[in-house]
Structures are given as structure tokens and as C-alpha cells.
Design a protein around this nucleic acid. Structure first.
Lengths: 206, 206
DNA sequence: TAGATTGTTAATCGATTAACAATC
DNA sequence: TAGATTGTTAATCGATTAACAATC
């Protein structure tokens, strides 16, 4: 359990999402690796192999009890606590993230928002007041925040990242279209819509 | 060149992005697989191997001419044309995407926006008028649009996807937190911030 | 019991890396 | 020339899959 491949970890939230859907939308109480795989376009063998890294969660003949497997996945992914998140950038994207109601039910709460634009500082974003980015480090440390969402332009992203790391942040979801350099103990996840679109156009006939 | 692994294709836009950065921000005209890899946290061997699927773009001793490699990557990824994109959903996220100025310089133009909310239909979004989603298929076909960005709630995403596919869309960037079922000739790329955050919390100590 | 499905093993498949001849 | 760096090969490393005994 010490050395589970990251590619396996990356699939667990997808399993968790689909299991929640099966429970809430389809009102099912059990499922099988075959059914889950069918719905996600993943082989049943891969799902069983992935889960086997962490224990035995199913029963031969009947499959998996959905609520139990959801609970196990939430523990594995450290989602039994709610994670406070700092949002950096109060532009259009920052607004969208601040208003997104999908964070809370899945384990995350945006707790503070920062911007460097005096016209945005003080603004109310879905109940959160935008703070001056100068206060970022002190507020992050005070609230013991370990996760940040970066929604700033590319040209300030690395500088802000360095400050986040110094302030103790260990995971960054980066929406700026730029690679970030961080120490090995800091996680970075990237979301650049253009990179995603460009990957798909390769397969399209111009 | 017929059968390049998708994981290789996925790195090409990253190379392209960093090369553009090297040219525009650092004013460099040449680079090496070593330098590029250093900046991206990728081995130089992997970069050379990836590029070798498509041809020989460098020179021994001197490396790669940046502008030339950029042009080659743009051709490989089919970015020599500008791709019109349909945006589905005019909520906060739709607003953010409609105002994002990073699409045009990298090959994409949001050409139409759709929503089903009568209060949003007719609204002006950064120069685009929000259309009734009932007109989605006809407008997409008329404009010969092959790429859509899905920024709707999860509960309508599959239904809209089916309609997009019928209208001829071949690539979907999906922001709804749900797996989409599509025919094999349709590309889907996913962007669910919570999935990305949950992958990172695995590595965090609660 | 009969049917279904797990967890696991071994085989297969695919991706990454190290090394180096070629050559600018 | 000497130094640097490519493109490519072969070896290594890692991930996926097929198959099946175990068992609910």
C-alpha cells in the first residue's frame, strides 16, 4: 500500500464519482467491477486490480456494496475531512470557481480568495470577501490551508506558486497555462483548456 | 506516423506551449531537448523519442530551431487553421470561457454560445449573443463546427452530448462532472476540478 | 446447487530510459 | 578540431489484460 502507482490513484476519484452517481441517481445499493467498468469505459480487470492495492472490498458472486466502497475510497483519498482551499485570482474564472456548488459535497471548501487588483479587493464573491494578495501568506498559514487553486494569468503564476509553497501549501490546481516548478513534496495538477483542445484536434481532419 | 500513442500526442501541446514561451518571453531562437525537458520536468530522451514519431526536426550539436519546431507541431496538431468552437452553457463557467483571451492566439475561437435559460438567451457574452439551445444543432451544422465545450450541469450533459454528436461534433471538452458515452470516432476530454483535487489529497497528510 | 463475481497470477503489451554512433 | 546534441536502438521498467481458482 506504500507504493501505489499514481495512475491508479488518478482513477479512484472517477470510481468514487460514478459510485456516488449509481447510489444517488440510479438508487442502486450494489454494483460489480463489470458494471462500473461498462459505465466508465474501463475494463473490469483494471478496476479490480486498482482496488486490490488497498484491500478486499467486494464479495464473490455479488460484487461491491456501493456505500461501503464509497466510504473506503473516501478514506483512501483522505476525504473524510473537509479540505479548506485558497483561491488565487478573482477574475471571471475565480468567480466561476467561487460560485461552483460542486466542491462542498465532495470534500472541499473555498475559504479565502485573493487578488492584486484594488478594484476587486473587498468585493463579495458568493459570500467570500476578496482579500489583498499581500495578505495571502499570513491568511493561508493562519487557516492552515494546504490546497490552493491558481486562477491568475500565466505571468504571475510561478511567482505566486513560490509564495504559496513558502506558506506551506502542498497541492496546487493550476489553471494558468504554464508549467510550474515546485519542490517534490508539492503536488501540481494542470487544467489548460487549450492543451486539452489541441490534443483532440490531432485526431480531427482539418 | 499512423499509430502514435495518445500519451505522446498529449505531450505535444505542452511542448508547443513551452516553446512559444521560450520564443516570446525568453527571446530564444533555439533550444535543446535537454533544456526543454529541464523546464518541463520531462527527460530529454522522452522529448526526442516523442518528436521522432513525426520526423527529424533538430540538428546534432545545436538542437532545435524554436520557430521551426513550433510550426511543425502546429501542423501535426492541425492548428494551422483556426477551429470554431461551440460553447454550451452560459453560467459562471460559460462566462469565464467566453471571456478567456487565451483561445484565439492558440488556434480556437468560440463562435456560438447556447443556454436553455430564457433569462440568459439573448444576453451578450463578450460580443457573443447567447442562443436558445433549441437552435444548437442547426447552428452547429450551419457553421460546420466540430468542437464543443460543455459547461452545463451534470444532469443534462449526456443528453446534450448525444445531440452534439448527432449534429456532427467530433471533440468535446467536458466540464460537467460526469463520464460521457460517445461513439469511438468522437474525442472527449475531461475537466473536473474535484477529481483533480481528490487525486492530490491522496498524497496529503490529513 | 448453479451462477456470478471476486482477488490474484502470469502473460502480454506498451512506455520510458540509458547509451551511443552519427554529425553539426 | 572539440564539444554538443540529435535520432535510434536495446534494455528496462511499468501497466494492462486474460484467465481461473476460490467462494459467496
Amino acid at each position: 500500500m506504500v507504493d501505489v502507482p499514481d495512475i491508479v490513484i488518478g482513477r479512484l476519484p472517477i470510481y468514487l464519482r460514478e459510485l456516488t452517481r449509481l447510489a444517488e441517481e440510479e438508487n442502486q445499493t450494489t454494483t460489480s467491477s463489470h458494471e462500473l467498468g461498462q459505465r466508465l469505459g474501463i475494463s473490469s480487470a483494471q478496476i479490480r486490480k486498482d482496488l486490490s492495492h488497498f484491500g478486499e472490498f467486494g464479495k464473490q458472486g455479488t460484487g461491491y456494496h456501493i456505500n461501503y466502497l464509497i466510504e473506503q475510497l473516501r478514506e483512501i483519498l483522505h476525504l473524510t475531512q473537509e479540505w479548506p482551499v485558497a483561491l488565487i485570482g478573482a477574475g471571471y474564472l475565480g468567480h466561476a470557481l467561487a460560485h461552483y456548488d460542486g466542491f462542498k459535497p465532495r470534500g472541499f471548501v473555498i475559504t479565502c480568495v485573493f487578488d492584486n487588483d484594488p478594484r476587486k479587493i473587498g468585493e463579495n464573491l458568493n459570500g467570500l470577501v476578496v482579500s489583498d494578495i499581500h495578505d495571502m501568506e499570513s491568511i493561508i498559514q493562519e487557516k492552515n490551508i494546504k490546497i490552493a487553486i491558481l486562477a491568475t494569468p500565466a505571468n504571475t503564476a510561478q511567482e505566486i506558486t513560490d509564495r504559496l509553497v513558502k506558506a506551506g501549501v502542498k497541492a496546487i490546481l493550476n489553471y494558468a497555462p504554464i508549467h510550474l516548478n515546485v519542490p517534490p513534496d508539492v503536488q501540481v495538477s494542470y487544467s489548460d483548456p487549450v492543451v486539452q483542445l489541441q490534443r483532440m484536434t490531432y485526431y480531427l481532419t482539418p
